[in-house]
Design a protein around this nucleic acid. Sequence first.
DNA 1: TGTTTTACATTCAATTGTGTATGGAAACGC
DNA 2: GCGTTTCCATACACAATTGAATGTAAAACA
Lengths: 213, 213
Amino acid sequence: MARKTKAEAAATREALLDAAEDMFMEHGVARTSLEQIARQAGMTRGAVYWHFKNKGDMFRAMLERVHMPFQDLVDEIEALEHDVSSLEAIRLACLQGLERFEQHPRARRVHAILVHRCEFFSDIDPIAMQQEIADECRDSLYQHLLISQQQQMLADDLTPEVATDLLQSMLSGLFHEWIRDPDRFSIYDRGVPLVNQLIGMMHRSTPAARADR
Amino acid sequence: MARKTKAEAAATREALLDAAEDMFMEHGVARTSLEQIARQAGMTRGAVYWHFKNKGDMFRAMLERVHMPFQDLVDEIEALEHDVSSLEAIRLACLQGLERFEQHPRARRVHAILVHRCEFFSDIDPIAMQQEIADECRDSLYQHLLISQQQQMLADDLTPEVATDLLQSMLSGLFHEWIRDPDRFSIYDRGVPLVNQLIGMMHRSTPAARADR
DNA sequence: TGTTTTACATTCAATTGTGTATGGAAACGC
DNA sequence: GCGTTTCCATACACAATTGAATGTAAAACA
């Protein structure tokens, strides 16, 4: 076969990853062969083995295309905390995260694959990856809820530990319910009232809890 | 090979399912061959193909050994609702559910396999199964939270819809965090304060929210 | 412009898993 | 007690993938 331009080669690499996403999503990771991926991209397995070491390497590359923006959210909290209260910053960061999930279809698909379309294989451990993401999110929430408590924002009977577990569990559950079938409902539309309500209930006895629904 | 007694045959069937659980849990469903399962049980594939049609049939049989006791929980709510308030009945049913998860290691393992160790194959769709379980739980919660609202138990700014989403998301998230690595923490120990806190916050302005931790 | 490297396609060897067919001895029904 | 059925082991044929080896024409480079 004729050699391609560097730009063309990069394009086929992207096309292969796109095809991998398609086939992984449709048939699951284990049930899709490298030939199916190659044919979906209009190539042969030769192209796949040129750009990637094997299926595991391809999977890893697919994940690396969607950078997990959790640290970005933390940074946004940080930037906001100078203007608004810490609890309010957390609330806005959660809403921002929901919105982001909704608006990046590639990130949505890759997360769906990671959670529901693959079991571990070769040296890929999706559960460990999910663990890592969840822990990162959890630690971040805890740090900021600790600040909220120090600022006397949390309700009397609410410890930052329980508050963290509550928020993290709720967000995690919402995510899992949604990612199971993202077309069933909008994670943003369902999530906004939940976040507002829960954060509102966490506030220190401000009877006029705001639930803008 | 010599024919076995009916009791012995039933025992090997159970042994095969035990072995399947072990291997599915350890290597994932897709990566375990029927021969691995047979050898783990001290048998050959002949035994497997005698008792089951194929891997999918075996998987289904494995799931059928653990009856999902969600309707039992609903019934327990029903039985309790004559004595205590509806919200209190929901709270107790949630705690009961957590306890049950903790205490049945087989159910725990099978759920872990269903969620994290398999993608769909042949005519098995684990996501649809999880969907079914979640919907059943959600519907049940909603029905009873509707009663709570009619009994004027819910906080003014809390609709039964949002309350349902909150509780269900929180429970689902807690479950997913736990099932990812059940040895990391006790779902009961972490769940009890969460349920108590959340249900407590849902109550209609009873300032003395109870958080027994 | 000539040489080297790149970006694939094609082919091949080897492995792995599946489903089925066959066999055999003991348990079961009568 | 005898035929039949059951429970499982063994053997075989078949398809599906994989990884690597080889081929090749054009791009990149000097």
